Structure formats: C-alpha cells, structure tokens
Computed example of a mutant assay.
Amino acid sequence: MSTLAVAKKDFLDVRRAKIVWFVSSLYLLLAVAMFYFGQNNAEEPEFRNALQSLTGTGALVLTLVALVTAYLAIAGERESGSIKYMLSIPNSRREVVLGKFLTRSGVVVASILLGFGIGTILGYLWYPSVDLELLLGTLALTILFTLTYVSIAIGISAATASRSRAMGGTIAFFFVTTVLVLFGLVNTALGWIFNDVLGRDLSGEVLTFIEALVSPMIAFSRAFNIFLADLPEEAFQDQPWYLEGEMMIVILLAWLVVPLALGIWKFERADLG
C-alpha cells in the first residue's frame, strides 16, 4: 500500500465517528449565526465584519474540530492492536502517519470549505457586496491555521501508545496554547519568567513574538493583519518586522511541519510490542 491507500482506508473509519461530524457541524452553525447577526438590524451591514467575526470566533471551534478529528488517529489503533495489521500489508510507518494526516486534513478542510461556502452564499443574499479577495485570503489562512492543529494532534497521536495519553497530551496542548492564551495568562507568564525570574527585561513586542512561537492561535490572529490594509498606516508603522503578518505565516508553516516530522520520527522508533 501507499500513503494514499492508507488515507483511503482511514477515511472509511473516520467518517463513522459521530463526534467528528458533531464538532464539524458546530462550525457550520457558527457560520450561519455570524452572518445572520452581522446583518440583523443593521442599516448598512458589512460583509467584512461578519467574516472577521467568523474568523475570530471560528478559530476556537476549528481547533476543537482539528484536535478531535486527529488525536486518536494512530494512538487508538496502537492501543487496539490494529496498527500491526496495517503495517503488515505492508506499509511503512511514515506512510501510515502521512496517510492519517491526509485523511484528517481532508475532513477538516471540508468543514472549512462548507462553512465559508455558506458564508459566501449568505453574503450575496444579505449584504450589499462581497469582498472576494478578502474572502479567499481569509479562507487560505484559516485552512493553514487549522492544519497546524491537525499536524499537532497527529504528532501527539504518533508519539503516544494509548488513547488516554493521546487525549491527555492533546488537552494539555489545547489548554496551554489556546485557553490560557485567550485569557492573556501565557503572555503574563512569559513576562514573569523572562523579566522577573531571568532578569532579561524583554519588551512587550518580543514577548508577543515568543507567545506567537508557542501558540498557533496568536500567530494566526496576527497574520490576519495582512488583510487589514485599509487601516491607518500609523497602526503598523511602529511594529517590528518579526510581528508582521508574513512572519506569522512562517511560524504557522513551522507548526504545520515540525510536529508531523517529530511524530514520524517518534513512531518509527516506537516498540509496538
């Protein structure tokens, strides 16, 4: 078999997972809600505002979609023992990891495309105009952001031998890099560690950059600044180069590649008993 063959077989399994379709449906309902409330009781509703609402609020839901879809991809089969059958066909361990990544990515991307598709239709029905350039750019960035979480979940799944460990690792990652970030606690903790404990006296901009390195959510939110070209130039003129949107995309690409590579490296060396 090959990577594509593994992906095809895995799709037959994942499509029966009700929890995956449940969390995916939440994103579709969110898309409808954001575009409905964006124009409700508004004399001149703006498509951009509704899209920004979907992008910001939807990011949290999409992290859950990605993590729930992928965190048991390999660990679940290792615990049940079915991974040995898959590897005896034969498939290399790398093909298994990449195949699982393709399948779970496909499910997640399908949810995003449906959500944005619904938003586009509602945009033409309820709004004076639709900014297609903004729509496509936001769609591409949202897909990249969400795939980083698929990569992270697959990497965790490939590096763990049981469902409980995969779940624990995934929850811990989500809690630290998403929940704590949203409450501003990660930035506060970084300031305490570097400035108070280590005495480095780092600026707020440097701390924000470090926060973006440890949280795809922060990198995603700052990368969205690329599409805010109509804001006053003063809003970005004092911003250092390492906080620009293009740099945030580089960070997201690193989050896409590194966890998957580490997962493959760990899985190839694992004792499957």
Rank of each mutant, 00 (worst) to 15 (best):
A42G: 02
G56V: 15
A229T: 07
R269I: 01
V23N: 00
S24R: 00
M1C: 05
S92C: 08
L135Q: 14
V176C: 05
D131A: 10
I89V: 14
G273S: 05
G184S: 07
A158K: 11
T69D: 04
R165F: 02
I74A: 02
F175Q: 06
G137Y: 12
L139N: 04
L98Y: 03
L144F: 03
T120Y: 12
A166G: 15
M247C: 09
K84M: 14
V107I: 04
A7N: 11
V186N: 11
S129T: 12
R48E: 10
Q39P: 01
W265F: 15
F183R: 01
E234Q: 07
M86T: 14
T160Q: 01
S24E: 01
Y36M: 15
Y124L: 00
V257E: 03
A31E: 14
K266R: 15
L60F: 14
A235K: 05
I193M: 07
G119C: 07
L125R: 12
R200Y: 07
A33R: 06
T3A: 06
L51Y: 13
V61H: 09
L136V: 13
A33E: 07
V130H: 09
R163N: 09
N195K: 12
L228N: 07
T148F: 01
E246H: 15
L228F: 07
I152A: 07
K9N: 12
P45A: 10
I218P: 04
T148G: 07
V250R: 13
A70N: 06
I218G: 09
L180S: 05
K100A: 00
F22A: 02
I226M: 04
G117F: 13
F194E: 14
G38P: 11
Q39H: 08
